[in-house]
Design a protein around this nucleic acid. Structure first.
Ligand SMILES: [Mn+2]
Ligand SMILES: [Mn+2]
Ligand SMILES: [Mn+2]
Ligand SMILES: [Mn+2]
Lengths: 227, 227
DNA sequence: TTAATAAATTAGGCATGACTAAAACGCGCA
DNA sequence: TGCGCGTTTTAGTCATGCCTAATTTATTAA
């Protein structure tokens, strides 16, 4: 077995494992195969490779866990992913639903100098366009901003959109269609118990006050910061 | 054979073929294998693949030639390579000898939107940090700036450093060691017939006039624009 | 305690893109 | 015309990472 080899595939597995661990979920071959759109049998094979490389602790039929080096690598990938996303949105003018797939590629560029200089160039941002925290150059990961799901808000609350749960492009695109963007300040006018939807009021791009009703499904995935 | 597949390997072959064609050299399996640090037998294999994909015209024992689609793809790679190099030097503060290897990775990122927005962000630069022209979004490649090799200059000529021949990192690093950078304005004081070296005068970073003797090997690879 | 079921692993293949060694080719020169 | 040598291709392997199908294991319910 050739040690010390990096590869896009291995790195995507490490990232997927980290993501499940951060959610407190069990890292099974099935859960990983769903995330990466492969098959459980393929995951078993990769678990062996990563285990031989010392990047995960793998007990057959029991699941996997990142080792110190594995976690370091995974966090570095997360850092790169989020910094590139931030660059694309803040500097290049992409919308927040357009950058995930491209960052999925950019995160594999091997150069610590590059990512650290990009970080400095942007002034060391703390959060990516989806509200997720960006690990610093030493791999320190701060908590997600103390945000609340919008469905927890009560009538009269004023808050600003600061993130989303998950990273579904269709959801982000839907938000875009409705004119919901990061930083949008809105006030909860009414909460409908019947279907869990809420009526909100906010200023649109043309400075006009606008009323809108957000569905239960939408507000459950939308994160905001209370004013 | 799975058509329509992109891959880093195939793309590097296309770039290597384009580079040889632009130099007017014959595209043989040996020449490509030297450029890519593979073996001629491997090149034969890849020539077949690229030929099946319609990206090159390949006649066994005769060599290869880019087709229209192949050339388009290769020029797009060249565009991406040079734009990323420019970004790293102009925006991130890299030196011109540090960016080639990283651009070798970045050029494979698949996203026309990304590279076009990066191009716009930088104000549509025409030349990369090594003086090479950057193809535009439609694949139009203008000529290299009409530069002269420094060994062709005569006593009393004043010129500015605008590029290098080839892309050897050791050469670029050597230039850096001597304080020779893009845009440096210098005057030829003497030309030594004996060994082809020339004595020049220029202002260093601290605004002091500085004299230096450049070797024949150095000035042959250094390109400048006459004032 | 055992049987059924769901999850995970093994076995066997395939595609890509490298490699080495051996055979075939093509071109210049006698 | 034909020989010789350097170039190129072919043949056969290997590593990676994916797949499907068959088998094994863990867990849960009877
Ligand atoms: Mn990725
Ligand atoms: Mn993100
Ligand atoms: Mn490359
Ligand atoms: Mn260049």
């Amino acid at each position: 077995m050739k040690l010390s080899e990096k590869s896009r595939s291995r790195q995507d597995y490490l990232k997927a494992i980290l993501s499940l661990e951060l959610n407190g979920a069990k890292v099974s071959t099935t859960s990983i195969s769903e995330k990466l759109k492969t098959k459980p049998a393929s995951v078993t094979g990769m678990f062996k490779v990563l285990s031989d490389l010392g990047l995960i602790e793998y007990i057959p039929y029991r699941g996997a866990e990142l080792t110190k080096p594995g976690r370091t690598e995974a966090i570095s990938l997360m850092r790169k992913h989020r910094l590139w996303e931030t660059f694309m949105v803040e500097n290049l003018g992409f919308k927040w639903d357009e950058v995930h797939e491209i960052a999925e590629q950019l995160e594999h560029i091997e150069s610590k100098e590059l990512i650290d200089k990009l970080d400095a160039y942007m002034g060391y941002p703390s959060f990516d366009p989806h509200g997720d925290p960006i690990p610093d150059a030493d791999g320190n990961l701060c908590d997600r901003r103390k945000l609340v799901q919008v469905n927890m808000l009560k009538q009269g609350d004023t808050a600003s959109v600061q993130g989303v749960l998950g990273s579904s492009d269709t959801f982000l695109r839907h938000l875009g269609d409705l004119g919901i963007r990061l930083g949008l300040v809105f006030t909860v006018m009414r909460v409908f118990e019947f279907d869990g939807s809420i009526q909100v009021e906010f200023e649109d791009e043309d400075w006009n006050m606008k009323e809108m009703t957000w569905s239960k499904k939408l507000v459950e995935q939308l994160l905001a910061e209370l004013k």
